[in-house]
Write a protein that binds this DNA or RNA. Structure first.
Length: 645
DNA sequence: TCAATCCGTATC
DNA sequence: ATACGGATTGAC
């Protein structure tokens, strides 16, 4: 029933009129009279008897006989709703795209969609190169073999630097498809999707798969969805919209770069693609491939609990493929660097870039996105400017001339730098365009290109150029970059986010992975203190080590994924009411409240992993009590809230 | 004693 | 949400 009320989040029974005996199939969209109103609904199943002892009403209408909701996805959606203390209707809105009648008519469904899908293309991927490429990873070829045998292996994959991950993922998908099973792969953004699409077209031919993304129009989206639902393709790839894609006999789910926060669905109940796909694999007994250059604490937990195997390269292979990584001191060292070509480019970085350019290779320069950090630093020595009262970061706002503290709001009227006594400040983060201008002056005659939010480059040729990029917009270089420079890193590292360090390493690895191997002259210069763990992890190219460390720390602090957290946001009275009504599992920790915007406040709840399901159930029930009573002030409940501060 | 209104609960 | 039933209240 498509009503967003928690207390109505359950199936209702209706009689099927004789006229609809044929069209009223499980999975069809229907319209029914409910509490006097016509509402949309889903036909979950046909049964002979109803357990309901009241009077039953008839279905009003079968919107379409197309069984858009497969039994597998229906079960998954229920599990996801339960996991996130949400409503089935909300999840189904994410799972099934809006109907497009013209598209549905254009290609009438075969009466029995059990027609076997088109036979494998003759140009089936030859297994040798795939096995060889996956053989670079311990247990890699065994993983691929298991998929080809139709089994359900589960793996966390640490991609090698320089790895052609779209081709590796395509090989895994093709292996599952060759075994007659369906497969779903989710990537963070449209650019990654394009690359995977191309790789999969090379592996399976153009007709073996469909790609789903938010960018498609409603008609095309529904057409591709139907192609998957009707079993015309075995493989569906896409951005997070594809995580619920219906495929027949699901045999593999793939998630690339699970640390990217684009995998977080912003609509209720805010499910994460990782959790959806893992739940899906559990319910459907499908294989799992969670891969990336970096590894999240969540993926590490899968490895440590033994639920998934590790697909990691041997150290010798890493050494052969990784670039040389050079950390360059901190801001104060940088300031004393006489050879620095510009205030922000230490001489080591300048030299690395110059020798790469001379060797005819492009150079990648990663800078944080502008607006990341509205804090400022000394114009001379780059020491971050901090509040004298509370040591919080200062910000320059156009509203006043003197800098103010982001934490306590005090104005630093007569600021002087503790490092050098300087009195002048500047915004610390320049953004790609400004950096490009600076670099253009440092390397006259070298073309400078930028790739960022406005214009994202996909590929750059193997010729000398400076490519300035923000994280996530790095173009792939033909034959790899000769040098990768990671600048203004502290802006990433000091973000007010629990995952700041993990996220920083993820972005560094993503950029550094595009460099040539050290043996071919590839160098990465990271302007950061060499002693801090993310830099250590980059130096040794050891994302697993870092993830284990991160997970240990989260266990100690009681943070996810070691614990399960949820938030309740609303007016103080409403939040208090909700929590008073909730039958929370014993030992639930209540943290807060902390002020949220618009006079609201937020409470955090924390339980051990064993009580996670009970916490979600208790919160859903408590919300149901409120919606049933028509409580005036809503409370927003979020399991695994994106922002933990 | 009856009718108007309120409140709570179910909605197939 | 809306619709209904039982309780409650107020006027005769």
């Amino acid at each position: 029933m498509d009503v967003p009320l928690a207390h109505l989040d359950r199936p209702f029974d209706y009689l099927v009129p004789a006229d609809f005996a044929e069209s009223a199939v499980a999975g069809a969209r229907v319209r029914v009279r409910f509490a006097g109103q016509l509402v949309d609904g889903w036909l979950l199943e046909r049964v002979a008897e109803s357990g309901h002892d009241g009077r039953l009403m008839y279905l009003e209408r079968v919107v379409s006989a197309e069984p858009v909701l497969s039994p597998e996805v229906a079960r998954l959606a229920r599990a996801v709703a339960d996991r996130y203390a949400g409503n089935l209707a909300d999840v189904l809105r994410l799972a099934v795209p809006p109907r497009h009648a013209r598209v549905e008519k254009a290609t009438p469904a075969p009466p029995e969609p059990a027609t076997p899908p088109s036979p494998e293309p003759a140009a089936s991927p030859s297994p040798e190169p795939a096995a060889q490429a996956w053989g670079m990873y311990q247990a890699g070829s065994a993983f691929l073999r298991a998929l080809a045998d139709g089994r359900a292996p589960r793996a966390v994959w640490s991609a090698l630097p320089g790895e052609d991950w779209p081709t590796r993922v395509a090989e895994a998908l093709a292996s599952a498809a060759a075994a007659g099973r369906g497969a779903v792969a989710v990537v963070p953004d449209a650019r990654d999707l394009d690359r995977l699409d191309a790789a999969l077209t090379a592996a399976l031919g153009p007709d073996g798969h469909v790609a789903l993304s938010a960018a498609l129009g409603p008609a095309e989206r529904y057409r591709r969805f139907l192609a998957a639902r009707r079993g015309l393709v075995r493989v569906v790839i896409g951005t997070r919209a594809a995580m619920f894609a219906p495929v027949d006999r699901l045999g593999l789910v793939v998630l690339w770069d699970d640390g990217d926060d684009l995998h977080h669905e912003p609509r209720a109940p805010y499910p994460h693609a990782r959790e959806v796909l893992l739940t899906r694999a559990r319910l459907a007994d499908a294989g799992v491939l969670v891969g990336g250059y970096a590894r999240t604490a969540e993926a590490q937990l899968l490895v440590e609990t033994g639920w998934a195997h590790e697909l990691a390269p041997a150290r010798a292979t890493v050494r052969a493929r990784a670039p040389e990584v050079l950390p360059v001191g901190d801001d104060t060292q940088l300031a004393r660097d006489q050879g620095a070509a510009t205030a922000r480019l230490p001489s080591v970085a300048w030299q690395a870039a110059r020798s790469a350019l001379r060797a005819g290779a492009p150079v990648l320069v990663q800078v944080p996105r502008r607006g990341y950090l509205p804090s400022v630093s000394c114009i001379q020595c780059h020491t971050p400017a901090r509040c004298a009262h509370c040591a919080g970061p200062l910000e320059l706002s156009s509203a006043r001339s003197a800098p103010g503290c982001r934490w306590c709001g005090r104005v630093a009227a007569a600021y002087s730098c503790p490092g050098c006594g300087g009195r002048r400040l500047r915004a610390a983060v320049f953004g790609a365009r400004r950096t490009a201008e600076e670099l253009g002056r440092a390397f006259p005659g070298v073309p400078v290109r930028t790739s960022g939010r406005d214009e994202v480059l996909t590929v750059v040729p193997a010729e000398p150029a400076l490519v300035v990029t923000t994280p996530g917009a790095e173009p792939v270089a033909d034959q790899g970059y000769g040098a990768v420079l990671l600048l203004d890193t502290w802006a990433l590292l000091t973000r007010a986010d629990l995952r700041a360090a993990e996220e920083t390493l993820r972005r560094w690895l993503a950029a550094a992975a595009l460099a040539r191997p050290a043996g071919a002259g590839g160098r990465v210069v990271v302007v950061a203190d060499g002693a801090i763990p993310p830099v250590q992890a980059l130096l040794r190219w050891d994302p697993a080590w870092y993830a284990a460390r991160e997970l240990d720390e989260r266990r100690e602090l009681g943070f996810p994924p070691a614990a399960r957290m949820a938030s309740a946001t609303g007016t103080p009275a409403a939040v208090a009411e909700l929590l008073a009504a909730a039958r929370l599992p014993e030992g639930t920790q209540l943290l807060g409240p902390v002020p949220a915007d618009a006079g609201h406040e937020r409470m955090l709840l924390r339980v051990g992993r064993a009580d996670a399901a009970a916490l979600a159930a208790a919160l859903h029930e408590a919300v149901a009590v409120r919606t049933a009573r028509k409580a005036a002030e809503p409370v927003r409940v979020q399991v695994d809230p994106a922002q933990l501060i």
